[in-house]
């Protein structure tokens, strides 16, 4: 219904009035030119402002923020890598120190063992030498004692013979007989 009114006013548009009166406003043709001119000027102005000032500006803001976030993240990552590397170095150092400590311990143990072994050996040698000497002394003493046994036996034999026979036996013969009996 309103449309019909608009059309009727459109047909009688010779009245170059502002067009405020009569008909359905969106279909009043006499207002079209004014609106189009205003619209294109306004839109061109908006396009200019938006493309030359507003969008580059907001885009830069967003880009800067994005860049800042990324660089902060990169820095955080760098710090993390650094601390990881420090931790790894510390652990390696610790492992090295432990290995070194073990090596030193083993070495010391070996040295001490070798030293005590040496001492034991020299002590043993010493003892063996002393033992050998003692054995020699014993053998010597026994030899001497054995020699003395022969003389005593000869004397005893001579005395026995004298007592039995009443005559002094030949010392040499007694000695030979005693020796023979000892050896026999």
């Amino acid at each position: 219904m309103a449309q019909g009114q608009g059309k009727s006013s459109g047909s009688g548009q010779t009245t170059a009035d502002g067009g405020a009166k009569g008909g359905f406003p969106p279909f009043q043709k006499e207002t079209f030119a004014s609106q189009l001119v205003s619209f294109f000027i306004a839109f061109a102005l908006l396009y200019f402002i938006v493309s030359k000032i507003a969008l580059p500006r907001v885009g830069k803001l967003l880009g800067d923020r994005q860049g800042l976030i990324e660089s902060d993240l990169a820095q955080a990552q760098k710090f993390k890598d650094e601390s990881d590397a420090a931790l790894a170095a510390y652990e390696k150092e610790l492992a090295d120190a432990r290995a070194r400590a073990q090596a030193i311990g083993a070495e010391t143990r070996e040295k001490l063992a070798a030293q005590s072994e040496g001492e034991r050996k020299s002590l043993e040698d010493n003892l063996a030498a002393k033992l050998a000497e003692a054995e020699k002394t014993i053998a010597q003493t026994r030899q001497t004692a054995m020699g003395n046994v022969g003389a005593i036996a000869s004397e005893a034999a001579a005395a026995i013979v004298q007592r039995l026979t009443g005559a002094q036996p030949d010392a040499r013969a007694v000695e030979n007989a005693v020796n023979a009996s000892i050896k026999g």
Binding site: G18, E30, A42, V58, L61
Partner: peptide, 27 residues
């Protein structure tokens, strides 16, 4: 055809001004 500055024109420029204010003034 008469070219007039109308209430519609005023609101168009108002919208442009508002958008500019938001995008430039706001930032």
């Amino acid at each position: 055809q008469e070219i007039a500055f109308t209430n519609s024109s005023a609101y168009m420029f108002g919208a442009v001004a508002l958008v500019s204010a938001l995008m430039i003034g706001g930032t």
